[in-house]
């Protein structure tokens, strides 16, 4: 009886599942990417909780990523609130329901528009930035250099960025929501004099805990996937400077799509509940 060589079997299995180059085509490419992203996530999550913890790196990325997007998020939120109010006011006046305007704006901004618009801004700005930065590190072999010295680059390069975006995006959403309500208040005052106290009272009269919790939870997931997808696209970028641009571009597309999918799932879940 022929002796079974475990090493050969393992190598065959390894080859069997290395599908990336050999069998990738237009139809299965997305599924292969998804499978690899799941494996990548598993590795990142494993290394995220292994010491040494990179607290300074996490704080640095959190500050840089938050700081980079804050102004854009504030301006966008403010304009969204202003425009939405100006568009809705005539419709509600027709029904004699203009007193509901602050509440409707608050619910739509907190539940849906604030998180999704901020998520999309962050997908465009943070995910692409992370992808480009990590891809540049990969192209210049900095990640390989970390890998070969046994320094576990996933926890240093990826985990810190993923944690940072997971924390920063919900905070940015809070800013977007707050400034959208400021915009809405100014717009309401174009049509009629309303005190800030009355505006706040009317806004919060329609907002409940059930609006806040799913909205906050989904922004945490938005942040997680924005960081993860950006890092994954950068980490798996090919060789050459061209791949840096490609990684950034595909990160924006994938992160934006993921935000809509997460949003859809949350809306379905909250509708059932």
């Amino acid at each position: 009886m022929a002796k079974i060589n475990v090493s050969v079997i393992k190598q065959r299995v390894r080859r069997r599942f290395r599908v990336k180059d050999e069998t990738r085509n237009f139809y299965n490419g997305a599924f292969i990417d998804l499978g690899e992203l799941v494996m990548f996530t598993g590795k990142v999550m494993t290394q995220m909780f292994q010491p040494p913890f990179e607290f300074r790196e996490f704080v640095k990325h959190g500050f840089l990523l938050g700081n980079k997007s804050l102004a854009l998020v504030i301006v966008t939120g403010f304009i969204m609130g202003l425009v939405l109010t100006m568009q809705m006011n005539p419709v509600l006046v027709d029904f004699g329901a203009q007193t509901l305007l602050p509440g409707i704006i608050a619910v739509s901004m907190v539940r849906e528009l604030g998180p999704v618009i901020t998520g999309l801004i962050c997908a465009g700005k943070l995910s692409s930035g992370i992808a480009a930065e990590v891809a540049a590190m990969a192209v210049t072999e900095q990640i390989d250099a970390m890998e070969v010295s046994g320094t576990r680059p996933l926890s240093f390069v990826v985990a810190t960025r993923v944690l940072a975006t997971t924390l920063v995006v919900p905070v940015l959403v809070i800013f977007a929501d707050a400034f959208s309500m400021l915009g809405a208040y100014l717009a309401v005052n174009i049509f009629e004099d309303t005190s800030i106290t009355l505006f706040i009272h009317r806004s919060f009269s329609m907002l409940g805990f059930v609006d806040l919790l799913p909205a906050t939870l989904k922004t945490v997931l938005f942040g997680f996937f924005i960081g993860l997808i950006g890092s994954y696209k950068g980490y798996t970028a090919g060789k050459g400077t061209e791949s840096v641009g490609k990684a950034a571009n595909s990160a924006v597309v994938a992160a934006s799509l993921t935000i809509f999918v997460i949003d859809l799932v949350f809306v379905l879940i909250t509708s059932i509940l």
Binding site: S7, D144, V148
Partner: peptide, 27 residues
């Protein structure tokens, strides 16, 4: 090397230095 798990591989890699073509310094 091909039979190592990740932690064994990391331990081994500490004993093997690699000088990349471009240096690969962390910029």
């Amino acid at each position: 090397v091909l039979e190592c798990d990740n932690s064994q591989l990391n331990e081994l890699r500490k004993k093997v230095g690699y000088l990349f073509q471009g240096g690969a310094l962390y910029d």
